[in-house]
Computed example of a mutant assay.
Amino acid sequence: MDPFLPAWAALRTAVAELPDEDFERPSGCAGWLVRDLVCHLVIDAQDVLITLVTPATGEATVDAVTYWNVVEPPTGEDPLDALVPRLAAAYGEPRWLKFHLDDVGSAAARAAGLADPAARVGTRDEVLTVGDYLSAYVVEWTLHHLDLIAHVPSAPEPPAGTLAAARASLEKIAGVVFPAPLSDTDALLIGTGRRPPTGAERDVLGDLAARLPLALG
């Protein structure tokens, strides 16, 4: 489950240290403010808790790589995506969002630390080991950490180890290799369409540029 716990701890710490005014800034998720993204993280933490207490029988159907699919980029029309900003607004003050994320997020971290990595769990109509499930979530935590700090330059970046792990996972998921001159952060941001490549980066990407961005679902 390494680097699941460091990635999740770093993201929760970054949220906890945000000044209240930063919750009204845009996030790296199109159409979502930082407060909306934090609300989404609460839902993610709940999903982790639910999955870790949903044992499954039979052979694994996916692993940490095949858990993810490369899908069409989001259109903003997904009903759940539209629900999140309304739910986030209902919290009112940022301190309540911080409290809920700390409460549920800490529980998710404890559950992950106690879980047997070889045990099988069920989620999204699939079966996979706990270890693979938690490894898959490193991509989620790392991308959302980058989303959190997209317009909050004072916030801490994700740990180098989790950035490297997320890049490696994205390359395996999409069946591509990002050029070495691209940093892990730039590979993740450009690869998932969180920012367009510069002219120089497009030259470095070569034919790969035409396959980007990659949306995960």
Rank of each mutant, 00 (worst) to 15 (best):
E201F: 01
V121G: 04
A166G: 10
R195N: 08
Y137W: 10
T198F: 07
S183N: 14
L128N: 06
L170H: 05
T142N: 08
A168Q: 12
G199I: 09
D125Y: 02
I190Y: 02
V138C: 10
V121N: 05
G199M: 06
P156T: 08
R194I: 09
S169L: 14
P181M: 06
G131H: 12
H145R: 03
V127I: 13
G206S: 03
L188K: 06
L182H: 10
S135Y: 04
A166R: 08
L189W: 00
R194Y: 09
T142R: 04
R195K: 14
V152S: 11
A187V: 11
T192E: 14
A168L: 13
P153N: 10
R202S: 13
T123E: 03
S169V: 01
V138A: 04
L188T: 05
D116L: 10
V152T: 15
T162C: 13
D203Y: 05
L146W: 00
T129N: 03
V127T: 14
E126Y: 00
E157K: 12
A136F: 00
T198N: 07
T129V: 09
F178P: 03
R167D: 00
V121Q: 06
P158S: 04
P159D: 14
A166P: 01
G193D: 13
A150H: 12
R194S: 11
D186G: 03
P179G: 04
A119R: 15
E171H: 07
G122W: 00
P197W: 00
R120W: 01
A119F: 06
H144T: 13
T192R: 14
P159G: 06
S183D: 11
R202L: 03
Y137A: 01
L182W: 01
P179C: 04
S169Q: 14
V130T: 13
L148N: 03
T129E: 02
I149P: 00
E201K: 06
E171W: 02
E171G: 09
G191P: 11
L148R: 03
G131P: 14
A160E: 15
D132T: 07
A168H: 08
T198S: 15
P181F: 02
V127F: 06
L189V: 10
H145V: 07
L146M: 11
G175E: 10
L189S: 05
A166L: 09
R167I: 05
W141G: 07
S154Y: 04
G193W: 00
E126P: 05
I190N: 04
V138S: 02
A166D: 02
G206T: 03
R167W: 01
I149S: 06
A200C: 05
A180C: 08
V130N: 07
G199E: 14
D203S: 11
G131S: 14
R124D: 12
D147G: 11
L182Y: 02
L189M: 12
D147C: 11
R124K: 08
L134T: 05
P181E: 09
A180D: 15
L163I: 05
G131T: 12
D132H: 15
L128C: 11
A150E: 09
D116I: 04
A187Y: 00
T129D: 00
W141I: 11
V204Y: 00
P197I: 03
V152I: 13
G206Y: 01
T185S: 08
L182S: 10
A187D: 04
D125L: 10
L134M: 06
T192M: 15
D116P: 07
D147K: 08
D186T: 12
